[in-house]
Amino acid sequence: MMNNSRMGLGSVIVATVRRELLLAFRSPGDVINPLMFFIIAVTLFPLGGGADSAFLSGIASGVIWVTTLLAIMFSMESLFRADYEDGSLEQLLMSPQPLYFLLLAKVLSHWLIACLPILILAPVFAVMLAMPAAGILPLILGLLAGTPILCLLGAIGMALTVGLSRSGLLLAVLILPLYIPVLVFGTGMVSAALDSLPYTGLLALMGAMLVLAICLSPLAIAAALRISVN
């Protein structure tokens, strides 16, 4: 794919994202399945806990965040699995382009494929779960800043386990504890807004975590992929 080593960094990233998106549209399951999981799992909560709107509005932000987090975790399989099996992961590691940016581009395209649809539908489900209007904006802002962090951390876990034949539940054990800060601050933003407190500080904190994740996690992903591929 990107064997021209004189290609600029920007065009490499664009090319990677374009390739990933093209592959995703050829197998639309990668786009639809996380979204369907999100929709179905959110629907289960009123069915299991009761449709009382006071109860639902109490748990709405938690349900949406936890379900998003699980959907992202399950979607991670499609990030490296196919590439690992057809050998293009090996090529990626040997590519002359800086691996750091290639991996960022891959995670970015995964975010576009798996998270963006959820993000678009999240406010609809927030309303269905009787979340007051004041909570919707902080929910979306939180998801916007938080889901890329979840993708980056999930990519580390996936890179560690991609060489193992059955990795689904192991992945959950590895990365769900690392998801806790994002969950806490994401739902905290909504609660703060509902108590009419400022939530920009929390949003800034989430942004700081995103910057940290962008800086450090590609290094961990690269190290983990080298272990798995070898």
Binding site: L153, I156, L160, L174, P177, L178, S217, A220, A223, A224, I227, S228
Partner: peptide, 11 residues
């Protein structure tokens, strides 16, 4: 060993 080392550093 290497996978665990990476994971504990991430942790």
């Amino acid at each position: 060993a290497r996978a665990c080392a990476v994971l504990s550093l991430v942790g």
